[in-house]
């Protein structure tokens, strides 16, 4: 892997983290003194993806805006890695008229046709629409592919199994990605899943399955390269499971009392910075300037969101029908 690619992966992860740190800050800023999930400039559930950036950065490095992503209730890292306009993303999270869904969607329901991005708040149910996007690409004679993301908890849903079978049967250009962050909210993987690797489940449907054990962005990048190339070449779907890490709660406000692994978590971003530094790809100065640049872009987006108008209540029924 060349230095430019490695640097690109790092920058993508840093941008995503910066964005979520700003959301975290503003999300909690006005929910005090009595914490109220529905209060503040950013109301509602907030599922942040920090720790899982390697999965998105490694996958999306192989995609263009002609490729599609169906993401989960925890979608920001994939949205950002796939090139979503940060202003439109932030404005939707702040519930503004200028947001991607004009404030009708929220952070679990981001739709950006310009980069073929969508996500769903229902576990595993982003897989079936991914089949249709892939089907359309195939029938339209495009070489575009779809990356369909779920967590490891979703691999026990019917939608997951139906989708793997149908994608394999119709040789659809889909890369199924499982972010195994060890936790389905509070239920550990050992208590939910009868096998250690979901790559086995891919094999059982006649498609390639890979498990990456170490949350390595370069490991994801390697596996993604093969899977995306195969899908583009008409060789059908693949599955990549990445053992990643959920650094924060399932949602903000989750006290995580059920969790005993909090002291042993490895943050992949400083870890990758160290690796790149020791390989001579990154300097301390560059780490600072990359972080600075990301923060500037993020704060611009947050400012745009905050200064945008709220949707008009008189237009609440607009967009029910086309």
């Amino acid at each position: 892997m060349d230095n430019e690619t490695r640097l690109g992966l790092y920058k993508t992860m840093v941008l995503s983290r910066s964005f979520e740190e700003a959301i975290l800050r503003d999300y909690h800023a006005d929910k005090k003194p009595v914490w109220d999930i529905g209060a503040g400039l950013i109301p509602g559930e907030m599922h942040l993806s920090s720790g899982q950036e390697p999965v998105a950065a490694g996958m999306c490095a192989h995609l263009t805006s002609n490729d599609a992503i169906t993401a989960t209730h925890r979608p920001h890292h994939f949205a950002i890695a796939h090139g979503m306009d940060l202003r439109l993303l932030a404005a939707e999270i702040f519930g503004r008229e200028t947001g991607l869904g004009k404030g009708r969607g929220g952070h679990m329901h981001l739709f950006d046709p310009s980069i073929h991005f969508s996500c769903s708040g229902i576990i595993a149910e982003g897989y079936p629409p991914a089949l249709g996007i892939a089907f359309a690409f195939q029938r339209q004679g495009k070489d575009s592919v779809v990356v369909a993301v779920t967590g490891e908890g979703a691999a026990n849903q019917g939608a997951f199994h139906e989708s793997l079978n149908l994608a394999a049967l119709w040789k659809l250009p889909v890369v199924f990605v499982i972010e195994d962050n060890d936790w389905a909210i509070s239920v550990p993987r050992d208590a939910s899943t009868s096998i250690r690797s979901n790559a086995v489940r891919a094999t059982s449907y006649g498609i390639r399955g890979t498990r990456i054990q170490d949350n390595s962005v370069e490991g994801v990048w390697d596996a993604a390269k093969t899977a995306v190339e195969r899908a583009r070449a008409g060789e059908g779907p693949s599955l990549i499971e990445v053992h990643t890490v959920r650094l924060w709660g399932h949602f903000e406000g989750d006290a995580q009392a059920y969790r005993s692994d909090l002291d042993s978590l490895i943050d992949p971003i400083p870890a990758y910075a160290n690796q790149l530094e020791s390989d001579g790809v990154l300097s301390r100065e560059m780490i600072g300037s990359i972080s600075q640049e990301a923060k500037m872009r993020v704060e611009d987006a947050i400012e745009f969101a905050k200064s945008s108008p709220l949707p008009s209540a008189t237009e609440v029924d607009r967009y029910v029908f086309a």
């Binding site: 169906t70 149910e125 079936p128 991914a130 089949l131 249709g132 089907f135 359309a136 989708s163 149908l166």
Partner: peptide, 27 residues
């Protein structure tokens, strides 16, 4: 190519219809 029997997987093919429609087809 245009008239397709599906497996007995209603979740998968209902979702497939949605995804295909989003990308400009009319299932």
């Amino acid at each position: 190519q245009r008239i397709m029997d599906t497996p007995i997987s209603e979740t998968a093919f209902m979702g497939l219809a949605t995804g295909a429609a989003v990308e400009g087809m009319r299932p």
